[in-house]
Amino acid sequence: MREYSVFDIMGPVMIGPSSSHTAGAARLAKIAREIVEEDISEVEFVLYESFARTYRGHGTDKALVAGILGFDPDDEKLPHSFEIARQQGIKFKFTESDEESPHPNTVRMIITGKSGQKNSILGCSIGGGNVLLKEINGIEVEFTGEYETLITNHIDRPGIVANVTKIFADYKINIAFMRVYRHSKGDKAIMVIESDQKIPDAAKENIKNIDGILNAIIINPM
């Protein structure tokens, strides 16, 4: 039997009209913004299935842009996200896809940073404002953003995982969930670690300094 917190049932506080089509969409885009780690100049949202069919009536489009701006799902600026994004010089567009997707409420966010680098992030809004990130730059992942989450870019070779978890141990951070993904053997890989405690910046810097780690980012719990 699933466990529920009081505030799963009486909550969340959110901007309407739909927890899956509005609140979840804002959350997905906010996580994507944190993954990108630089100022954003352009975003293309590719919408699938129910998102593609009903996004205008549910304000899914406004919620996605709001997330890219870093707004939370209960931010009253959310309905005005288009104007605010335009003022900040962020370009955005929506494309409806008729391809199949892992879940009826799915979006691919193709984000171009100020440096010109492109990131492609796929996520699903799975109900009640909860989300699941499914893919980062061609590598399959799976995490919810409900925990403090560390995401690494690294080279697939022996010892990297051990070095990272050693740093978690040194800082007495308990790992709740952990998964490692890769393109192919010896190629680029991603590690996703969800922890029970906050991961201090110093720990992140130590992890970044590990030989073979290309980058590491932390996503705060939503």
Binding site: G11, M14, G16, P17, S18, S19, T22, G128
Partner: peptide
């Protein structure tokens, strides 16, 4: 109506029944 106009509500237990 606040919910449908993108205003702030508490999902209680859902947005549709808020």
């Amino acid at each position: 109506e606040v919910n449908a106009s993108m205003g702030k509500i508490v999902a209680a237990p859902t947005a549709g029944s808020s």
